[in-house]
């Protein structure tokens, strides 16, 4: 019989302290890799375990997962370069976001990380030109639905997703980091103005903005699906950057406040600290009742890789929409989606 775990704490423990994974019994090991795959953290876990054990099952898992991570890194960098070529005639800065930014600069967060779609950000004024250049270079629209298309254009922080005809890779073109309808209103122009140029001509966000974006994405936008993975990004970013200069935390707080994202940054930082042991200032540590719920939601995965806590997850799904748009608009949106047969939680 394999051993049952009702939440993903085992995975979190082994990411934080990989040595723990070396001492697991067979049932717990199987549970660990199942949960890691379900949370799309297998590559990250493999990277943490690399070279730590000669045990066959560990070596096998590590090698396999790193093959996949390396493949995704390769694809992602190729996609970054294809986009660079397609947007050569665009005048403004093109900022790489999330996975591709981490991969392009070889940051800690990129090690073993799963990378899906390419996310880039350009200024809202440049959207039209970027859209035209991408369409001319064989990207095409994924959704044909008029409601969705109009919804993206009127209310979202990105264009409807585009996919490349031959390579089957998606690109999300953002002009800011949260939906226009969300309450926080980050200063997208400042983010682009302060972005850091890379050698290939692309840009990445400055460290504080990278953290603000990661936090906004996790805490102020989604329903915390994939939360452990986003939180691992946050852990790596905070650990990478906090070593730099003494006043890092003050600068981060300041910048986060400027973007109206202090709550999201603070929230992600203290959850990264609680689960992954990220070093944060002691005055940032505080624990509210709602933090308990967030942590339970983050850990809602059992040793069979199944999602648990259906009602809590549904609650966070509602919350994500609540944060994303005003009540009346939300009612209309959910009604339209429901009529089209959309199922929120499975």
């Amino acid at each position: 019989m394999s051993s049952y775990h009702k939440d993903a704490m085992l995975l979190v423990d082994c990411l934080r302290e990989p040595e723990r994974a070396l001492r697991l019994n067979d049932g717990d090991w199987t549970a660990l890799i199942t949960m890691a795959r379900a949370e799309v953290l297998a590559g990250t876990l493999a990277y943490r375990l690399q070279g730590k054990s000669n045990a066959k099952h560990i070596e096998n898992f590590v090698r396999d997962a790193l093959v996949d991570a390396e493949y995704q890194r390769r694809c992602s960098l190729w996609e970054v370069d294809s986009t660079r070529r397609a947007l050569q005639n665009y005048d403004g800065p093109v900022v790489l976001m999330k996975g591709s930014a981490y991969a392009a600069t070889g940051m800690e967060a990129s090690n073993g990380r799963h990378i899906g779609d390419l996310d880039i950000m350009v200024s809202e004024g440049g959207l039209k030109q970027v859209e035209e250049l991408l369409l001319a270079a064989d990207w095409e629209w994924v959704k044909e639905d008029d409601y969705d298309d109009a919804y993206y254009r009127d209310h979202m922080h990105e264009l409807p997703p585009l996919i490349h005809k031959d390579r089957d890779q998606m690109i999300d073109v953002h002009h800011t980091i949260l939906p226009k309808t969300a309450r926080p209103n980050p200063n997208a122009l400042a983010m682009i103005a302060d972005a850091i140029p890379l050698e290939d001509g692309h840009y990445i966000f400055m460290p504080e903005d990278m953290i603000c974006h990661c936090a906004a994405h996790m805490m102020a936008d989604g329903d915390l699906a994939g939360g452990l993975r986003n939180l691992w990004d946050m852990h790596c970013l905070l650990s990478d950057f906090s070593g730099a200069a003494g006043d890092f935390w003050a600068r981060l707080k300041n910048r986060a406040e400027q973007h109206e994202l202090w709550e999201a940054v603070h929230l992600s930082a203290r959850h990264a600290n609680a689960l992954y042991g990220t070093n944060i200032p002691s005055e940032w540590m505080l624990w509210k009742f709602s933090d308990e719920l967030i942590q339970k939601r983050l850990l809602a995965r059992n040793s069979w890789g199944q999602q648990t806590r259906k009602f809590l997850r549904f609650g966070f799904y509602i919350r994500s929409h609540w944060l994303r748009m005003p009540p009346l608009m939300l009612t209309k949106h959910l009604f339209t989606k429901w009529r089209k047969g959309h199922k929120p939680i499975t």
């Binding site: 394999s2 049932g27 199987t30 199942t34 099952h57 096998n60 898992f61 890789g305």
Partner: peptide, 11 residues
């Protein structure tokens, strides 16, 4: 085996 490479579920 007591160790598994993969998990499959019938739900």
């Amino acid at each position: 085996p007591s160790l598994s490479d993969f998990t499959v579920r019938m739900e």
